[in-house]
Design a protein around this nucleic acid. Structure first.
Lengths: 225, 225
DNA sequence: GTTATTGCTGACGATATAGTCGAAACTGAA
DNA sequence: TTCAGTTTCGACTATATCGTCAGCAATAAC
């Protein structure tokens, strides 16, 4: 007893150490999320992050080359999670109406549960408008738009042109984040998500009409219905 | 000849000097606009601004107590102009459909002509989500929402409740800025404004439906129509 | 137990930026 | 011209923050 499987281990590749370092990385990311939501991407000091993560300052630079790297990685991760959730929830929706509602719904749920990530998403997007911003931020957002496009595209029989799909994606993504950002600052006691849901159908109705008009002839969703 | 009106001047209050200092202030504001659009609110150094305005550093502090003050004033001014243009263009529109289209149209025109102000608008809004941001920024945005609400309210016979109006305002403002922000980063060669206009009617159609449902009974615009 | 490797630390040097302030330039009036 | 009031200037100080690095601690290998 208590003997076997030692000789054949070869290289389990530092299982415990590996877990430990991954934990530190997560501590840093978690701390960064909080600090970013508190002070913004630019005003957050590295010291703030390491102190909140309760690690030495040097440790930060073991995991990231600097603030730019950190932000780029975080945005990439957040957007990937958002994309994954969209894909999961929309996997087999073929009705365009349902699909759009689902896409927006995913965003609502996502933002509600993860305020810090929403702030990151918004701040990152704001930086996209600048002439000099953090590098490596743009492509994740493009990929994110493309995911929406793919979902819409696969739910529509007739192919929409690339530009039209892109417009739809911009409209959906823009509307949700835009509405949310205003609602959050102006209606304290209201249940923002609930309300957003009611407006959601308004937008969806409009978008479906937009799609119908963009199609060559009738035929919107999966068929005549 | 060349004599009169000297004794009675009292104090025209330095008309020329006044103009001169106002010019300096404008130089600073103009420079700040450009620098903010280039580096963002936080990363813009005061030196950047004064240098671009071609004034000494100390001059900056003659006009503003610091960066916070500058940003607060700029956002206030930009939003006031936006509100004024909305009020001008929507003065006597009583059809809710037309009105919503006009409101969105004003935003499109405004943003197109003034990229730096759009960036400022967006960056400022992003900062509203933070726990610590520039002070004095929030109320201008609320006022701006309320202007939209007033316009909508005055175009509808039946009174909508305050929360419903607020939701509409958030939807309109959020949609335009949100769509714009994505469109601008993703479709280089496209005419963003043109496209936005086409999507605009989609949103408006949805919103009008939303309003109809929120009303006690029929009666949407100025009458039966 | 000893050694090698890897991860963690926080004080430190270098740099960058905010805001100040006394002097200079300018303005309009007399 | 002279003068008082006002505006501008930019060198300077104080401070804040970055990123480094030499040493320490924890872990894995032997």
């Amino acid at each position: 007893m208590m003997v076997a499987e030692k000789p054949n281990v070869k290289k389990p590749r530092l299982p415990r150490a590996r877990r430990r370092t991954e934990a530190t990385r997560q501590k840093l990311l978690l701390a960064a999320r909080a600090v970013f939501a508190e002070k913004g991407l630019d005003m957050a000091r590295i010291d703030d992050i390491t102190e909140r993560a309760d690690v030495g300052k040097g440790t930060f630079y073991n995991y990231f080359t600097g603030r730019e790297d950190l932000i780029s990685q975080m945005i990439k991760e957040v957007l990937n999670e958002l994309r994954r959730e969209m894909q999961d929830r929309c996997r087999d929706l073929t009705d365009i109406n349902e699909l759009l509602n689902a896409i927006i719904g995913v965003h609502i749920d996502f933002f509600r549960k993860r305020w810090e990530d929403y702030v990151l998403y918004f701040q990152g997007r704001a930086d996209l408008h600048l002439q000099v911003s953090y590098s490596g931020i743009e492509t994740p957002f493009i990929d994110y738009l493309e995911t929406i496009e793919e979902l819409v595209d696969s739910a529509i029989k007739y192919r929409l042109s690339k530009p039209v799909l892109r417009r739809l994606a911009c409209a959906v993504a823009g509307f949700v984040s835009g509405y949310y950002s205003f609602a959050v600052i102006s209606s304290e006691d209201e249940d923002v998500d609930k309300v957003l849901s009611s407006l959601r159908s308004a937008l969806v109705a409009g978008l479906v009409r937009f799609i119908r008009e963009a199609l060559p002839e009738g035929l919107s969703g999966r068929g005549a219905r």
